[in-house]
Structures are given as C-alpha cells and as structure tokens.
Design a protein around this nucleic acid. Structure first.
Lengths: 195, 195
DNA sequence: CACTTTAAATGACCGTGGTCAAGTTTTTAT
DNA sequence: ATAAAAACTTGACCACGGTCATTTAAAGTG
C-alpha cells in the first residue's frame, strides 16, 4: 500500500483497479461488488484487502481520480468574471458529484479526510478545489474584505449545501444550479455589488 | 409504520426503541447491532424489519429525537446579539452532532431527506433549525440585504463545513467553534459591521 | 361461538464486506 | 546454490444487515 516492493504487487493492484473501472463503467458505482472485482481481476478475495483497507478506500481512489480529472478541466478555464460564470464553470464537477446518491455520500464521508491519518484522494481534491477557486476569486469582482481562501471555503460549503438539497424531496422545485447561484451571490457580492 | 392498528404492534415498537436506546446509551451509536436490539426486545429479527425499513431508519429516529431535544433548548434561548453569542448557542447541538463520526455521517445522509418520499426525523430537525435560526437573525445586528431564511441556510452550510473539518486530519489546529465563528462573521456581518 | 380474513411475528436463509491462519512466491543473506 | 526471511496470495470462514415463506395471533362476520 505505502511502498510496493514487488512487481507482482503492482500488477495485481493495477488489475484490481482496471476491473473496478470496467464494472463501474458498466453498472455504476453503487452496484460494484468486491466479489465481482476480484473475479474479474483473477485474484482471491483476500488479496483485495491486502491492497485496500476496505471497499471505501477503492471508492475513494476511483471517485477521487474522476474529480481530479474534472479539476484539471476547471483549472484550465479562465477566471470567472461573475457569479453566474463561476457557477457555470463548476457545473460539470457538481454534476459528477451528484450523478448518484451513493457517490455523493462517499464524497461527503471522505471530504474531511475521514478521521484517518493519511489524507485520501477525495480529501486531496477538496484542498485542490479550494486552491483553484481561491485563485479565481482573488482577481474577480468579488468582495475583498476577507481572504480568497476563506471565500473559497464558503463556495465549497454552499456547493455542498446545494448538492445535498438536490436529493431532497421538498426542495426540488428549484434546480441545484439556481440555488447555488443565489447562495453565491449573497456570499461573494454582499450588498448586491462587488465591494 | 403509518397507522398501527393493534396494541401489540405499538408495544413491540416501543420495546424495540427502548432496547435500542439502552444499547446506544451503553455502547454508542456506532456499535448498535440489530441482533442485540431484537434480542433485548425479545422479538425475532424479522420483526424489526416489519417495523423499520432498515437500520438507518431507526438511527434516523433516535438521532432525530436527540437533535429535536437540543432544538427545544435552543428555541428557549434569547436571540443572540452577536456572532459569538450565536455560535455559543449552537455549541451543544454541534457537540452532539460531532460526538461520533458515525453519527455525523448518518446526519449528513439524512439531512436532505435522503431522496425518499417521506421526510425523515433528521430532515425535519434541519427544517426546524432553519426556522429557529432565521427567527433569531431577523432581529439581530446582522446583514439585512438578504432574507433571514437565506441567512439561516448559510449558517447551516457553514456549520456543516466546520463540523466536517473537525474530523479532518489537517485542519485540527483550529477548533471547530473558532472556525465557525470566522465563517459566520464573514457571512452575517460582511464588511466587518452590521449592514 | 365457529369461521374467515387480515395483521403481525418468526427464524432459517441469503448477500456482501471483511478476517486470518496457512500456503506460495520473491528477495536477501551466507 | 541453499537456507532463512520477508512479501504476497489464498479461500474457508465470520459478522451483520436484510428477505420471505410460513406460522401464529387478532379482528371482523354470520
């Protein structure tokens, strides 16, 4: 896990991940089964747990990788010049995160490093997300009385709030994106205009 | 579940809940087992699932009840006249929510009504929380350019963010309460003073 | 009261995540 | 080359949430 010494180990690990990817592509995250992964990878069940502490750790890896890919795209965009543009930029990322209730739950569970020592893949993407957004906000027409980092923290908090309500039975009149825009208007440009 | 007709049903249900409460009091939420609950309640396992759709539903009930009790206390407090006071008022509630990682996860999973038709106990407390906080904020020295309801939504979002980071390995230098105060200062009194 | 219908309880059974003592392969030491 | 040590793999096994055909008890009916 930390420092594989044998070539064999790397191959096994790669096979496990490849098998998981195929299964997820075919049936979604929710329906991935460890039994199916090990069967497809051609190893015994115990081997899986020699490579990953638990199922969640693999999910962390898989979902983290996809979020990272979204962040790659995000980071290449120009800094948004309005809240509307910011929300538009975030849309694909939030779309991925809310594609399955299960995925959103995994993300929530791992976003805060999950009380573990080592910071997992998803938690890393959350830090990165803060960096990307903070960079954007630093130069845009947004409030300047607090640090870009704090601003970005808030964007993340509101994004999670908006995504969470997405799955809620009551609040589904308003689409997630619209709700997020309302939040971010109030957060990033209090008083109605850039301060 | 919706309309129990027999006395027997009510008794069984009460026994199940009482058993669960005892076990939770003794070992915490995380370590509650259905097998132990039904054994203590003196019924078969299948009976449990005739009363609750799944384990999570019972957890929803138990945790929701405790949150509701906290909200009862909250609602009796005077409206806070500063962000610091607001945070102090919220402290016991947030303390309960973060007492166990497992509890926090259950709460997150159910806060948005969990994509079910009926709104569960925890989701109800979240609505109530918004009401209580909105009432407080309406009259206090906080920004007035957006509705108290929207303000309260934000308080909730930041509270969740602060609690989530509580469990994070990196961010544990700053205590949850301090972090929340920083967030809420920026959210409720942008520009440094009440607008 | 006897009979039927409906509601509730039962427990053997299953699916799936996770464990671990024993076996196999690879590396290191002599 | 050979033995000892370390790394890796194995699969039977366990824990625990959840299911369902069957049995038992309660409520309705004449």
């Amino acid at each position: 896990m930390t420092k594989p010494v044998q070539k064999r180990t790397l191959i096994t690990r790669r096979n496990l991940i490849a098998a998981a990817q195929e299964i997820i592509a075919a049936k979604g995250y929710q329906d991935m089964r460890i039994d199916e992964v090990v069967q497809k990878a051609g190893v015994a069940k115990g081997t899986f747990f020699a490579h990953f502490p638990d199922k969640d750790a693999l999910m962390d890896l898989m979902i983290g990788a996809r979020i990272d890919a979204e962040l790659d795209k995000l980071a290449q965009q120009d800094a948004p010049t309005s809240v509307g543009e910011l929300v538009t930029h975030l849309r694909p990322l939030l779309g991925f995160m809310t594609q399955e209730r299960y995925v959103f739950d995994v993300i929530l569970r791992h976003s805060g490093a999950a009380a573990r020592e080592e910071i997992g893949p998803i938690a890393k993407t959350f830090s990165r997300q803060i960096s990307v957004i903070a960079d954007w906000l630093a130069d845009g027409p947004f409030r300047k009385d607090i640090s870009p980092h704090l601003l970005a923290d808030g964007v993340q908090a509101f994004a999670i709030q908006a995504m969470g309500l997405q799955f809620c039975a009551i609040h589904n009149g308003e689409p997630m994106i619209t709700r997020l825009e309302t939040y971010l208007d109030a957060w990033l440009t209090p008083g109605g205009a850039a301060a």
